[in-house]
Each structure stands twice: as C-alpha cells, then as structure tokens.
Design a protein around this nucleic acid. Sequence first.
DNA 1: CGTTAAATTGAGATCTTTCAACTACGGTGG
DNA 2: CCACCGTAGTTGAAAGATCTCAATTTAACG
Lengths: 241, 241
Amino acid sequence: MQTSKAKALCTDVVWEGRADCRHCKIRDQVLFANVPDEVLDNILIPIDNYTYPNKAVLYEVGDENRGIYTIRSGMVKLIKLLPNGTERVVRLLRAGDVAGLEVLLENSYSHKAVVTHTANVCNIPVKVIRDIERQNPDLHDELIARWQRTVDDADHFIACFSTGSAQARIARLLLKLCADSRDNFCVSLSREDMGAILGITSETTARVVANLKREGVLDERNGYFRCNNKETLQNFSDDTN
Amino acid sequence: MQTSKAKALCTDVVWEGRADCRHCKIRDQVLFANVPDEVLDNILIPIDNYTYPNKAVLYEVGDENRGIYTIRSGMVKLIKLLPNGTERVVRLLRAGDVAGLEVLLENSYSHKAVVTHTANVCNIPVKVIRDIERQNPDLHDELIARWQRTVDDADHFIACFSTGSAQARIARLLLKLCADSRDNFCVSLSREDMGAILGITSETTARVVANLKREGVLDERNGYFRCNNKETLQNFSDDTN
DNA sequence: CGTTAAATTGAGATCTTTCAACTACGGTGG
DNA sequence: CCACCGTAGTTGAAAGATCTCAATTTAACG
C-alpha cells in the first residue's frame, strides 16, 4: 500500500528537537497556555517537535496512539474516508489547534491527518497530558474547551462548508480562511483540497475560483489568496442556492 | 418574535415532575450512569422532567443558560441557522443523548433544538452538574466522553450526510436510523427534516424515498420506516456520485 | 529549458432544484 | 356522518447546477 512516494515523503520529516514549551512563540494559543513553567520544565517524558512537509501524514485512521499533536505553524487537514474510497475533509487545523484529541479516550485515531502546508508540530504523549493534569487541574478545563472548539469547527463544516451552492461554499471558505488576517491574506489551497473540504469537485472549484479572480474579487500569488472584496464574498456566501 | 403559534406549542409542554434518576429506565445510557444513588438522592437543586410535543423548541441560539437536556425518549434535532435564513440540521439526538453541553462553557446555546418526535427530557441545571462533579470526579470523564461522541456524530454528518448523491445520503441516513434496531425499524422523518439533515430539498428527498418504496427496499407505516433490504441500501450508500 | 503536476476550460451527461399542480390523509365543524 | 380544509407527500417539466472526462494552458521546479 505504501508507495515509494509515501516513503520519500516520510524521510523529509525533520526532528527539530525536544520541545521548548517555556519559550514557545505561540504559548498563549496552545494547550499549555495556563500551565506554569515549572510544571513544563519537569516533564519526565519528552515532547518532540517536528517539521512535516506538505502531504506528510501525521497519522492514519486506526493508528496506535502515539499522542496528540499541537500545530505550531502550517496547516493540517483531517480526513474521513468513505466506504467508496472518497476522501472528505472534516476539519482544517492551523496554528494553535490540536489534532488527535480522541486518543485521550480511544487509543487510536479516528481520522487521517495530512499536512497541507509545511507544518511545525509538537507531539505530546498522552502520559504527559495525564502527568500535567495531575499537577495542574486547569488543564482539564482547557481540554474540555478544546473539545467544544472542535465541535464548533465541525458544525461550521456542516452548516457553512456543506450547504448551498458551490459559489456560496467557496465564498464562505475564503472568508473563514482570511478571517483573522489583517490584510485579507491567507494561504491558498489546492482546488482538490478545497473540493474535499466543500464536498464538490476540483473542477467546479477551479471554475468558481477562476471566476472570482476574473471578477477581481480574489487574487492568488505565491501560494496566497487575497480577498479584495469581502462584501462581494459575503453576498455570495449568503446566496440561498 | 414569538408568534402565537410558538406560544401554542409551548403550552403543550407537560411537566412530568421532578426527575427520579434512581429509577430512570435508561439510567445506564445517561450522563449519570456511574453516579451513585446516594449522590443523586442528595441533589439540592431539582432536575425537572418534561414531555415536549412534536415541533416544540427546547432552546434557541443565544438563549440564556437554563441547563443541559438529557433525551430520555423521542428525537430532537439541533439546527444551525445560516445568514440567508436556511436551516441546516447538524445533529440528531435520541434516547441517551445530551443537548446543550455547550452551556457548561459558554452560558448560552449555540443551536436551536427542536423536537421531531415527542420527547421526554430531563433538564439538568449546570449547578447540579458542578455539584455532582465535586463529589464524583468520574462524571468529568463521562462529560468528556460525551463531547467526543458529539464530535463523532458531527463528523458523521459531514462525511456521510453531506457528501455524495442524494440517494447515497438518504441510504446512509436510513441505515444509521435503524442501525441499532433488531427489525430494521426506525421512526420515520418528514421529507423536510430529512432534507435539512442531508442538505438537499424535500422534493428530491421525496422522490428518492418514493423510489425506494416502489422498489420494495423501504416501507413506511404508522410513522415508521422499515428497511427491507439493507444490502441494497448499503450499495446505494457506497455510490461514488 | 524540459518535465510534471496543477489549474483551467469546454461540452455533454446527469443530477438537483424550482415551482406548480395534484393527491392522500387526518382532523374539524356542521 | 360527511364535506371541507390544511398539511405533507408526490409528481411533472423546465431551468439550472454540478459532474465527468478530455483537452489545453499555466505554473513550478530541477
């Protein structure tokens, strides 16, 4: 099943070293935001930091529990495989998000996690979570908050990315992607990925995106989208059909 | 905003009395499955039990926290309203499921919860949860398990109910509905509800369902569906398109 | 500058929506 | 008891959207 291509990808993974949580640049966004430095300094089991290239697979459905992943940069998609072989993206994770929370309960992953934009991630063994939890019960609340955020994200996929016309879905995706950007910039996604996120084909996606570009609503350069006209996108996203 | 119709519905709600958790028939399926009787007997704030008729609204988006709801029987749909007025069902809750978990974190509801089949529910104030949690930390794990189950359900909506042809989606919905039935029976849903669950129109739903009935794959009597031929449905659900 | 993958586009087939008409059925009121 | 009414389901027909598959263009990269 594993082709030489997959192997080639794996070898590109870079172990950046042991995570240095104390000095993590996005410390305030991650799971350990409220865990004191002392606690983190005394972790007995190491947290490793890796850089995964585009298309690398963090884990597959059913893989044995090897901990949760905190995304520090880049983007990761969570995929559900349908019986017929179709892949449907059910979540998009970005800096500060966590992948694989389910292993805290189930001991194996329920999605396939694939990198869409070179991602720097921390791999946190479950035992580390348990140890910190014991010393710092607040982490428990943070975990619950993460679960709730996951539910909210999933709801967004259902309500916004899986409902309405192709154009409306694409407009919503673009707005979501550049929501917290000051200049309406966001990384661009392949038409294939956008299609798998929105439940439409890559060709339909390409057509709509190309239209938006022709109309000047959207630009694409150096792997980035730029939404020139959020109002128009907003209108498109409100379309009933 | 509240029309006379909504008011009329509300007046049908029956307060069945204070919940008797100790003797609850589905005790093993609910949130308090592992909470000892003594703890439940000593709850200071009352848990109320109600029977809501079809179309009754448990809560609306943004309603002030009035606790979580355990569904003891019947069915409840959670709806997300799109900016354009469309309603999309994002979850279906049945006996043993919990609605409104988000108020444990957010103090208001993030969906509109509407009864689709006369529902007997227990309304549990957040303070009760907190009190029990203090005496019985296991409840914490049960809550987390509920969150994870919610995520799984949401994923199912994305991957199975929002992907593929109308026929495939309907087949998947039917299979899901009668999954844990011995005789392949399940309550029937209005074509409108099915459409809102699957992201298609009620007419398309009616056409496909009528076809299934004509082909003998499905029967509908007295408000129940009966899947006569699961294999055929399985094949339909695997369709790529 | 050649090679390759991704994006774009065209054209026809297919599916879904729309909107309108019609049917079935369960009350309701006379 | 029956005619009437309203809702939900069904169906038809045409318009519109999306998919499919193939061809073409563009962009990325060694």
